[in-house]
Simulated assay, not measured.
Amino acid sequence: MPTRSQRKIADAVKPQPLADFKVGVDNAIFSVDTAQNRLLVLLVMRQQQPFLGQWSLPGTLVRQGESLEDAAYRILAEKIRVENLYLEQLYTFGGPERDPREETDKVRYLSVSYFALVRYEDAELIADGVSGIAWYPVKQVPQLAFDHNEILAYGHRRLKNKLEYSPVAFDVLPEVFTLNDLYQLYTTVLGEFSDYSNFRARLLKLGFLCDTGLKVSRGAGRPASLYRFNATAFAAFKDKPLVFI
């Protein structure tokens, strides 16, 4: 009796008509609100069918002559103003019947998803007179249109993983920053709150942060040292888990 894998292979090689596709890009745009220790995601309310009036991730169909990455950046530029951000392609969601329009249009709708990370205080929302755009705490996101809850969950997992294995945090922080700025970003995204003293000691031991010799005063506490990220020194840790949180 053939196995399940053998049956799937046999079904796959049967001649079938080619599918027509439309390609969209959907962005899971995360922001880190370190003041309230919240990881947020940008949602927009759909202004047309399908799912009229329902929250979704910002998305668009790819235009003629436009690359996927350009479409992702266009979504960002239409929704927020921000200088420092991290953007990466996430995954392609293309299961049949993921979009209700497939039945009437006789076209399959693919979504090439991206995820982005920005700092909440640095990102200005662009409303342009259109209601229905907001930052939502990731833990409080409602039921979204299409399969966007699945895209969001996938993006959240990838973001946490990238933070532990890559210098993504330093694409979001200003050129100079305090160790507390970095600590707040990590703990907000990862949802883990280790002792700050241990975090500081482990991080500085790795050697890819340079003390600028400058300090900044915030509130009544002692002035905090400002650091700069050294990408060359970080190269030795590429794709290795950064165990300091």
Rank of each mutant, 00 (worst) to 15 (best):
L226V: 10
L125T: 06
R63F: 13
D239T: 12
S131Y: 05
F208H: 06
T188F: 01
L203E: 06
I29M: 09
L144Q: 07
D105G: 05
D195K: 09
D20E: 11
L204Y: 04
Y165F: 15
L39A: 06
N161Q: 14
V112G: 00
L173Q: 10
F21M: 04
V138N: 08
V112K: 14
S197M: 02
G94R: 07
S194R: 02
S197Y: 01
W135T: 09
A236H: 06
L117R: 12
L40H: 04
G129L: 02
G155I: 05
D128I: 03
D147V: 10
N198Y: 02
W55Y: 14
L163A: 12
I126Q: 11
L61S: 08
T232N: 12
K240F: 01
N180L: 15
A169P: 04
A224N: 10
V41K: 01
T188M: 04
R63G: 04
V25F: 13
I133F: 03
V189K: 05
L85V: 07
R218Q: 11
V112Y: 09
F21Q: 11
W55Q: 08
R63Q: 15
D105K: 14
P100Q: 13
A153K: 10
G95R: 13
D211I: 10
F234M: 00
N161A: 05
S225Y: 08
P17Y: 03
Y183S: 07
Y86L: 11
G94F: 03
T104K: 14
L185W: 04
P142Y: 03
Q143N: 09
L87Y: 12
Y154W: 06
F177D: 06
L125Q: 09
P50K: 12
L214N: 08
F93P: 00
F177Y: 12
L242R: 12
A123R: 11
G94Y: 02
L182S: 09
L61V: 08
I75Y: 04
D122F: 01
T92Q: 13
G155R: 07
T92M: 06
L43Y: 01
L179V: 08
E103W: 14
R81G: 09
D99S: 08
S56R: 09
N27I: 04
R7Q: 03
E103G: 01
S217E: 14
Y186P: 00
N161K: 15
T187M: 08
L52T: 05
D128H: 09
E97P: 01
Y86A: 13
Y86M: 06
V13Y: 00
A77Q: 12
S194T: 06
Y114P: 00
D99W: 11
S166P: 00
G59F: 15
E150W: 08
G129D: 02
F21I: 13
G207Y: 09
A71Q: 03
H148C: 05
P17C: 03
R108E: 09
A127T: 10
G132W: 08
K106Q: 15
Q140R: 10
V141I: 05
Q64N: 09
A233R: 15
L117Y: 03
D171V: 00
F244D: 07
E78V: 02
A220G: 00
